[in-house]
Design a protein around this nucleic acid. Sequence first.
DNA 1: ATTTGACCTGGAGTGCACTCCAGGTCGTAC
DNA 2: GTACGACCTGGAGTGCACTCCAGGTCAAAT
Lengths: 133, 133
Amino acid sequence: MSYSIAEAARRSGLSIDTLRYYERIKLLDPPARDAAGRRAYSDDDLNWLGFLTKLRTTGMPIKSMREYASLRRHGVASAGRRKALLVEQRRSVAERIAELQGCLDILDYKIENYAQVERNVLGVEPGMEEISA
Amino acid sequence: MSYSIAEAARRSGLSIDTLRYYERIKLLDPPARDAAGRRAYSDDDLNWLGFLTKLRTTGMPIKSMREYASLRRHGVASAGRRKALLVEQRRSVAERIAELQGCLDILDYKIENYAQVERNVLGVEPGMEEISA
DNA sequence: ATTTGACCTGGAGTGCACTCCAGGTCGTAC
DNA sequence: GTACGACCTGGAGTGCACTCCAGGTCAAAT
């Protein structure tokens, strides 16, 4: 199957402008063109875009995604380096999850503080309502 | 205790420029000044900066942090709204963690693919080494 | 035949969160 | 008394990842 840029945008969740932008900066190999010169994205293109958006979600900078994309063009010889990039990204994602988990705990603590204030606010003498932050 | 801007930067993990920037955009109330007009950060200032950096880590935009900071200045009357902001942020952090977890699974899958290629690459006839992405 | 709508190109503009700079003021060390 | 280092100010510059724009082409619908 092949898809117009609008359809590819819909399916990838990226904007039309972003699709052209990714092509310009060589994140995406130029897709095929139809008779009128319009882009015709393949399923492979869509799969690659799907993976790219996952990498983006993990916070990988475009620079690194470009490196990965470029390695991919160099075939199996680059598989080791590609794996290394993914392993490094895996590490950074796990770290980020732990960091966010810590923030979640702090938020819960703060929210519980506010909840206590709400429960007590009617029975507290003026001047004592202060909350730490 | 009070701290020079350099010391406050060291303790908060923010740069000196960022501390002045946060003050300019009203994320941080102007700290006290010493006799020579230099900033003298209090422990309260440092605690607030610590919380701000947590919010930043969660991906809260500066706009929202400013709103929270501004509410804080309005005392206990704003506690409900502040709590609501934190609850909303808690929700978005939990969502983000789930999303990252999904990415982690995909990375693991890809990494395992590459590992298999590595294990097989010596015993594979040429032309069959292709890997999906 | 012309209007419409989707698409094309190269290039400029945007929003965010800093980060850097020039030029100046202090207080302490030599 | 001057050199130094840390600090001050207002404002300009940076990097990232898009996002928008003007002006143009093309095929199908009216």
